[in-house]
Design a protein around this nucleic acid. Structure first.
Lengths: 228, 228
DNA sequence: TTGTGACAAATTGTTGACACTTTTCAAATA
DNA sequence: TATTTGAAAAGTGTCAACAATTTGTCACAA
C-alpha cells in the first residue's frame, strides 16, 4: 500500500499498484485476494477495486480457482509454456526489427548496451541498475517493431513471466553472460540479418529459461508462505 | 437485448451478450458504447456493465479513444497485423499438434472434415452450417495443443479477428478451396510432419488474409450502397 | 466418532445516488 | 453575423448500503 494520488481514475491507480506488488513479490504467488480487505487497505470502495482485479485476472496475473481469487502460482510447466510463447513471439518480433529498425533506434539501443557494460565492469556493480538496463534493452528492441498487436502480445506474456523476476534475478552471476547474448542480438539486427537475429534471441531466451528453472528449483526447497 | 436469466453473475451474462453482438455485427465497428444506455437496455445497473465493458476492452474488442468507448474499428493495417499474429501463433500450435495429437483426436477432426465435405457437395449446401464446421475444425485442432498459454493467445487473437467474420464470410465461393486447405493441414498432422503442417497452415492463413482483404476492399467501395 | 442441520460470519454481486467532468446548445452580447 | 458564456444534459467514476451466496462452526443426535 502506498500513497495513491489523484488525476488518474482510482481503478487504474490500484491496478498499477497491485500489479507492482505482485511483480515485486510483495503479494506472494498463491496468496488470497479479498476485495473487501484490499479496498480497506487502499481506503477506497470495492467498485474501482473490483475493476482493477478483473483486469489483472484477464491479464493472467490473478486466477480464479474455486473459492476466489489468488495471485497466480505458476509451476514449472506453466513457466515452460510461457517461456515458449515468449520465444515464439519474440522470434518474430526480432525478425521484423532486423528489417525495420532505424539507425537512430539502433544507436539508442547501443547506448544502453554500452552503459550496461560499463556498469557490470565497474567496482560498485549495482545489480539493480543492471537489471533495469536489461529491461530497457528489451523494451527498446521490441518498440522498434511495427506490428502493434504483436508487441501487445509479447508484453502480455512478459508481464506474467515477471512474477518470477524477483525470484530469478537475485542471481548476479549471469550478468556478463546476458550482456554477451544481448550484444549478439544487437549485432545481428544491426547487420539486418533476420535469421541470425532469430537464432540469437532463441539462444538468449533458452538460456533465460534454464536460468529460471535453476532458480525455481532452488526456490522449491524453501516453501515459505507469506501474505500482504 | 435479449432475455438475461439467472445463475451466472450479471457481468458475465452481459459480457457474453455484448461480445456476441459485436461479433455478429449487431454492434457495428466504430459505434459508441455508453454504459448508461446499455445498462438501461439490459435493465441492470452500471456496475456489472462496466465490468463487462472493461473485460471487452482488455480483450481488444472495445477501444478507448478520447471521449469514450467504441467497438474497435479495425482497418486494413490492423487486420494484417492480427492475421500475422495469428499465423505466427498457429504455426507453432500446428507443430505441437503434429507431435502430440492422439489418434482419437485425429479421428474426431476427420469426422468434421467428412461432414463438411458432404455438406458442401450437397444440394441445399447450408452456408452457415459450413462456417460452423470450419470453426469446429480449427477449435478441435487447437485443442490438441498441450501449451495452454499458447492456446489462450491464439484464441485471443482469433476473437478479435472474428469481428470481420460477419463481413468476410458472406462469400460462399471459397468453401471448396478452404476445405482442401483444411485437408492438407489434417493430412500433414496425421503424418506427424511438423514442417509440412506449418507450411499448410501458412498457406491457409495467407489465403484467409487475401480473402479477407478482398472483402474489406469491397466493403470500402460501398460506404454508401450496393449489394452482393 | 460421524453426520447433520441450522445459525453466524465472510465474501461476492448488485443497486441507486451523488460528485465531478465534458459536451451541447441556445440566449445574450458585441 | 459571429462570438461568448453559462446553464442544462449527458457521461464517467465513486461510494455506501443492501442482497445473495458461500463458508465456517458448533451443538446435538445417531
Amino acid at each position: 500500500m502506498k500513497g495513491i494520488t489523484f488525476q488518474k481514475p482510482l481503478y487504474e491507480q490500484v491496478y498499477e499498484d497491485i500489479k507492482d506488488n505482485i511483480l515485486t513479490g510483495k503479494l506472494a504467488p498463491g496468496s488470497r485476494i479479498v476485495s473487501g480487505q484490499l479496498a480497506e487497505q487502499y481506503q477506497i470502495s470495492r467498485t474501482p477495486l473490483r475493476e482493477a482485479l478483473r483486469q489483472l485476472q484477464i491479464e493472467g496475473l490473478l486466477e480464479n480457482d474455486k473459492a476466489g481469487l489468488r495471485v497466480v502460482k505458476i509451476d514449472a510447466k506453466d513457466f515452460e509454456e510461457l517461456c515458449d510463447c515468449r520465444l515464439y513471439l519474440e522470434k518474430e518480433v526480432i525478425r521484423l526489427v532486423a528489417e525495420e529498425a532505424t539507425d537512430d533506434q539502433l544507436q539508442e539501443i547501443n547506448k544502453v548496451l554500452e552503459h550496461s557494460e560499463k556498469e557490470i565492469n565497474s567496482e560498485g556493480s549495482n545489480h539493480k541498475k543492471i537489471l533495469e538496463l536489461n529491461a530497457e534493452f528489451h523494451r527498446l528492441v521490441i518498440d522498434c517493431c511495427s506490428n502493434k498487436r504483436l508487441i501487445q502480445l509479447v508484453n502480455q506474456v512478459r508481464s506474467v513471466l515477471l512474477i518470477y523476476r524477483g525470484m530469478i534475478l537475485r542471481d548476479e552471476s549471469h550478468n556478463k553472460e546476458i550482456l554477451e547474448e544481448h550484444k549478439m542480438i544487437f549485432n545481428s539486427i544491426t547487420e539486418r540479418d533476420k535469421e541470425r537475429a532469430a537464432e540469437a534471441i532463441e539462444m538468449h531466451l533458452t538460456n533465460d529459461k534454464i536460468r529460471g528453472n535453476k532458480m525455481l528449483d532452488q526456490g522449491r526447497q524453501d516453501t515459505s508462505e507469506k501474505s500482504l
